[in-house]
Nucleic acid binder design. Structure first.
Lengths: 165, 165
DNA sequence: CTCCGTGCAAAGAGTTTGCAAACAT
DNA sequence: ATGTTTGCAAACTCTTTGCACGGAG
């Protein structure tokens, strides 16, 4: 669907900040972005947007179901585009990378358990926290090569951006 | 185990605020409390504690594994005593009540999925959000008895405390 | 007596809101 | 033209921290 149309369907005018933000989520290779991530990426493109606007737009997009808001451990919320099937997440506690997964067995158990408790399920969130494949490998390499003084061998996709908090 | 002993084992002196807070978690019929919940409950007992102290104590208890910190949807963290087996939560989006559940099938799938992704699992959190049995019943009663002008029929265990946020 | 722990006030991080100017339609 | 949207600054919420006093061991 055309992007401007997608916006109009939600009663939102097709403004530059909104178009750019949506574009980011559709084309960035990082699917999960925080308000600040979006802010910095737009500044990089010399877009003069305020952080407040980004929060507002993200909120509107989430209400319009264009984006999904996710709250992993910690304080910052991240957003992802709502185009794929429902899924849960594995979050790397070292590089913050987010992987998605889906398991119908777990989904079914959840539904069943809710029913057993007389609970009317509306939403659920499952997140696994740990070390991703890359970080396990890197950590292992480091402990072997011992005294390389923490090379901090890359990995963060949002490269330069200081790991806030 | 004696409470003061439990504290000393963690290198914490047995002070009044710490004793009272621990006592709260051990004897309150509400297992999940936020810093502010604790604050208000202590004030009710005419305990003159600062909110900052509560945050500090909760943090120390969480580090000492006496309490577990949980972050459900939204911004406030809640704590519960770490005395029972691992479990996950169903959180009522209407009355904020928290129910606990455990399902070994889900646990096993999680472990398996992590392994398949080369992910070194360290922690995980699963929360179901929806309406608890009581709220479903109350909502249903209301829509039948129609115009009773929102009786707000009870339910919140933390009674008088205004629903912060 | 000696630190550890406390209350208070102030700082911090992330997010939201009020407002006048700028923009989409 | 007109109702929306924006950027800025200030407000807000939850949490953490600095500091001097007070209490535990």
């Amino acid at each position: 669907m055309e992007i401007p149309q997608q916006l109009r369907d939600s009663g939102l005018k097709a403004t530059l900040p909104r178009l750019k933000i949506l574009e980011l989520f559709q084309h960035s290779n990082v699917r999960h972005l925080s308000a600040e991530d979006v802010y910095r990426l737009l500044l990089k493109e010399n877009l003069d947007v305020g952080l407040a606007t980004i929060y507002r737009v993200l909120m509107q997009f989430a209400e319009a179901k264009i984006l999904l808001r996710r709250q992993f451990e910690g304080d910052r919320a991240v957003f992802e585009i709502n185009a794929t099937e429902h899924h849960d997440h594995m979050v790397c506690v070292e590089c913050d990378k987010v992987e998605e997964f889906f398991d119908s067995a777990i989904e079914e158990r959840q539904t069943l358990l809710a029913k057993q408790h007389g609970f009317k399920l509306r939403d659920h969130s499952l997140s696994l926290y740990g070390l991703c494949k890359d970080c396990v490998a890197r950590d292992h390499a480091q402990s072997s090569a011992s005294r390389l003084q923490q090379p901090h061998l890359a990995a963060r996709m949002m490269s330069k951006l200081p790991k806030h908090k």
